[in-house]
Simulated assay, not measured.
Amino acid sequence: MAETTNTPVTVLGLGAMGQALAATLLKGGHPTTVWNRTPGKDTDLGAAGAVSTPSVAEAVQAGGPIIVVLFDHASVHTTLDPVVDELSGRQVINLTSTAPNEARELATWAAEHGIDYLDGGIMAIPPMIGQPGASILYSGSEAIFNEHRTALELLAAAEYFGDDAGRASTYDFALLANMYAMFGGFMHGAAMMRSVGVSASAFAERAAAWVTAMAQMFPAYGELIDSGDYTQPIQSLAFHKAALDAINRASRDAGVATDFVAPIKNLIDRQIADGNGALEFARTIEELI
């Protein structure tokens, strides 16, 4: 059953993301209790009406779901293990960046202590929270998701991916891998353009349009990879080898390190050596599995 009143919420962790989450919940009318390991990060939230507590034990007594947004998996245990008895029968929503198996471990730990557990992957930076374009992916307890969906959607678009607590973080890190590779490619390109006197800002305009156009190919690549048939390439691995070899030469000529592009070249070279040069570039995924 979805919540029909402004449920109280506790937020543990007041880094930039925790502050953004708590501020958005407050703005949405939810009584919000906050805690942070080091003092001084609750000033603005206190002025906005949040209740700040000096200890985790006091924070979790406030009622309602407990949103955990800490540094890493270990910090979740460091924070919650001492109050595990107080958490029995409670709902924990972990928005800390935890790897899939770490999320599953936390779900098992929670179940062993009578805690209902929902894991989430935040697809946003702190200023995006509560704004269009932000999303948070969830998996684990469907009961928590359904009961508090209204509050969760104050924070960002909310999507549920099933009872495997590690599925949301798998999506999270897969998308982040895509993002980091994209930004790495931009930095490499900007470094090359600097060698001929073109600013990163000027290059960014052209790069954004190019990457946007290329991203339209994702659905076709997805279908091709799912089919497993790489025998009818538009451009073969051999073609892409020539392109990557040239990019590496041009990078060295420009005095640019090849840390971002060399791994792609290595993947292609390995496939060529194995006799797969006539196959589609998308076959590269098979080298990763």
Rank of each mutant, 00 (worst) to 15 (best):
A62D: 03
T78S: 14
T79Y: 03
A107M: 12
P100N: 12
D72L: 06
H73F: 13
P54H: 11
L87Y: 07
V76P: 01
A74Q: 14
G63Q: 10
T78G: 01
Q91W: 02
A107T: 08
A57G: 12
A74P: 03
A59F: 09
I67L: 14
V76R: 00
S97F: 09
V92L: 03
S75Y: 09
L70Q: 06
S88A: 15
T98S: 15
E102M: 03
E58L: 04
P65Y: 02
T78H: 12
S97D: 11
E58S: 05
F71H: 11
D72H: 07
N101E: 15
Q61V: 00
N101Y: 11
F71Q: 12
A107F: 06
A62L: 06
T96L: 08
E105S: 13
V69G: 05
V56T: 07
L80G: 06
S55R: 04
I93A: 07
A62M: 07
A107H: 10
P100E: 11
V60K: 03
T96F: 00
V84R: 13
V92T: 02
V84C: 03
V83W: 06
I67N: 01
A74W: 02
T78M: 00
S55G: 09
D81H: 00
G89E: 09
E105Y: 05
F71T: 15
P54V: 09
G89S: 11
T108F: 00
P100S: 12
R104V: 11
T98F: 08
V92H: 04
S88H: 13
H77Y: 14
V83R: 02
T98H: 02
G64L: 04
I66H: 00
L106P: 08
D85G: 12
T78I: 11
E86T: 12
A99T: 09
V83D: 06
E105D: 14
A99F: 12
L80H: 03
D85K: 14
L80T: 04
Q61S: 15
S97T: 15
V56P: 04
A74S: 14
E102R: 07
A57R: 12
D85C: 00
A57K: 15
D72A: 12
E105N: 13
T98L: 11
L106R: 01
V92F: 05
V76M: 04
T78K: 12
E105H: 13
F71Y: 12
A57W: 06
V60L: 01
R104S: 03
A99K: 11
E105P: 07
G63N: 03
H77R: 14
G64H: 03
A103E: 08
L70R: 02
V60P: 00
F71R: 13
T79W: 01
R90A: 10
Q61M: 13
F71W: 10
A99Y: 13
N101P: 08
L106A: 06
N94E: 00
I67P: 06
T79M: 00
A57S: 15
L106T: 02
T98V: 15
D81T: 14
N101T: 15
R104E: 09
S75I: 10
Q61G: 15
E86D: 14
V83L: 05
T108E: 14
